[in-house]
Design a protein around this nucleic acid. Structure first.
Lengths: 210, 210
DNA sequence: TTGACCATGTAACATGTTACATGATTTA
DNA sequence: TAAATCATGTAACATGTTACATGGTCAA
């Protein structure tokens, strides 16, 4: 019920083809809403039929033609209408949490590698976010700094969402430290480390920003 | 691909009927994995056919009979096998983030009520988690306290997951403060408050624990 | 006697995933 | 000449959502 709206937001920020949208759903928007290209093409067709977006064929030299979509007036009003509707509780899916609780019925220590793998992914993503923040918003990590630069609403809101991503990754990294400490405590044959899991920090993080 | 496993974990923690599982998916497990009763009945049927769970009819006085399910040896080994498999990136869906970015194309101030509503839900859930923690784990919020009580692995891991939920809610409440401050800044006709949004805190939270 | 709770389901539909297909161009 | 990127799609399947159906007990 919201892929349409995520696409509207993305197309309003910048018109583009289905392929380009699919790329964006692997990057920026993809950090808080995922979709594959098959889904995107299917929904784009419906949105075009509903008159939410307009397509225009763009011939390209040396590349296949593409259909560039842009948001119509009807699409914009569909989006603003949706903004006013309350969103329902949003369903959660934290597969790792299921695994952590399930670990009680297997060998808890067997989960350590998987949890470390996840933590590495979160550290990478955090590094990526921080790099993007430095690049696009001038290195400031703190909110509520009205006097500094005068950004337009779009950029301000993009930054707010990015700060949310950063807060989320930091929270996850810290929680996974907690989980690792718990798993080590439950199976003390493995080295529990100097203090049962190093504390969360984002300074010396492996920089994997693109 | 994981509802089966969430059900296995829940049934291992305590056998029960489809109806009871549906209740649990509105409480404990539901905080990190949601499912409706229709989904649960459908999957239970498949799991029984696959031999992962055993059913036994339990007649009840004054109530309709129920089928109580419990995990078979095959089910347990399916779970432990799954624990060893790496979980993929897990797809994210943060509808509010889509809305925040979309607010740039409408009236940003119109989102304030919705964001406050979400923040209230997160405060409620946090209060609920903290009450559950006090009830079930003795009021301690901090991890890594090996000497204190000697809980079994299952309870330790449940507590670790609960701490994750608490960390998540605190992070969300703080981030939504940030978002509110940003929205107020972008439409200064509304009172931006003493300091643009009160800081996150969980002490004087409306206690809505059941 | 109305509504809430217990208990289980069917059917239709919407959404998301996986695999496969096509064909051009650019880069190594 | 092989692989990667651009660009769009179909088909089959799995999962999740919404609406509807049934029927008993218990409390107000």
């Amino acid at each position: 019920m919201a892929l349409e709206h995520a696409i509207l937001v993305s197309l309003l920020e910048k018109p583009g083809s289905g392929y380009e949208l699919a790329r964006r759903f692997e990057r920026s928007i993809g950090y808080f809403w995922t979709a594959t290209h098959q889904q995107i093409y299917r929904v784009l067709k419906r949105m075009e039929a509903d008159g939410w977006i307009d397509a225009c064929d763009v011939p390209q030299r040396g590349r296949p033609d593409k259909k560039e979509y842009s948001v119509s007036a009807a699409g914009l009003s569909a989006l603003t209408g949706w903004l006013d509707e309350p969103v329902q509780p949003e369903s959660v899916r934290h597969e790792l949490a299921v695994k952590v609780r399930g670990a009680a019925f297997g060998e808890p220590a067997a989960l350590i590698g998987e949890v470390e793998r996840h933590q590495r992914m979160h550290r990478d993503r955090l590094a990526h976010y921080l790099a993007g923040q430095r690049r696009d918003f001038g290195g400031s990590d703190t909110a509520g700094d009205p006097g500094a630069e005068d950004l337009d609403a779009g950029r301000e809101l993009q930054h707010a969402v990015l700060r949310g991503g950063i807060a989320y990754e930091r929270m996850m990294i810290a929680w996974l430290d907690d989980v690792l400490a718990t798993l080590h405590r439950l199976s003390p044959r493995r080295r529990p480390g100097p203090s049962g899991g190093r504390p969360a920090q984002d300074g010396p993080v492996p920089d994997s920003a693109p």
